[in-house]
């Protein structure tokens, strides 16, 4: 099956979800194209396992399709709701995975191009993914949502069900830990001492 392009680029997610609930196939396609990459990106960073991230993405999207007829406009943003569901699904899987040593956790698939000029950037991304995987779950979640997914602190607070100050604290601690973990690989990933 080929997935066509988003033909409704100017319509907000919330309105698309209402159209979807009314049986509009184009809205289903537009939402799939818009939201799937964001959910997958977040899940992949949280789980560091592509196959598990894909399962979580499909499950989160299925929950969105099922909630659509009861969706009340104005109460929440679709993306915030979806990140929250994804976050809970990832947390469940991480809890089940407890006891598996970090070194045994599968690496995130690297989709980076293999051209020589991109090798250093690829090294850096791999180092970042490995460092992210070593963060405590809540810190990783906050850092990924804030600094990679680009969400605001109030949105993250709603997703993680905590206060804004707690989000700030988690992201600050997460970044400090990341910097410390990456410092050990400074030379390999091409950063000078500073």
């Amino acid at each position: 099956m080929t997935v066509p392009l988003d033909t409704l680029p100017d319509i907000p997610d919330e309105a698309l979800l209402v159209l979807y609930a009314n049986g509009d196939r184009a809205a289903a396609r537009a939402l799939t194209l818009r939201l799937t990459p964001r959910v997958l990106g977040f899940a992949a960073r949280m789980l560091t396992d592509r196959a598990e991230a894909e399962d979580v993405t499909q499950e989160a999207m299925l929950r969105l399709w099922r909630i659509a007829p009861e969706w009340r406009q104005g109460e929440a943003k679709v993306t915030t709701w979806l990140y929250r569901v994804t976050s809970n699904l990832c947390t469940d899987r991480l809890r089940r995975r407890r006891g598996v040593p970090l070194d045994d956790a599968p690496e995130v698939e690297d989709d980076a191009p293999t051209a020589e000029q991109d090798m250093m950037q690829g090294e850096r991304m791999a180092a970042l993914d490995a460092a992210l995987a070593r963060l405590p779950d809540r810190q990783r979640q906050a850092v990924v949502l804030r600094h990679i997914e680009g969400l605001t602190n109030p949105d993250i607070a709603r997703i993680m069900d905590i206060g804004v100050e707690a989000v700030e604290s988690l992201t600050a601690r997460g970044k400090r830990t990341l910097a410390a973990l990456l410092s050990g690989q400074r030379e390999r990933i091409g950063y000078e001492e500073g």
Binding site: M1, T2, V3, L33, T36, P37, L40, E54, T57, L62
Partner: peptide
């Protein structure tokens, strides 16, 4: 960010 595979997109759209 990781790019969703066509197979994943198709599964989600089928759902």
């Amino acid at each position: 960010a990781p790019v969703p595979s066509p197979a994943l997109m198709a599964r989600i759209l089928t759902d």
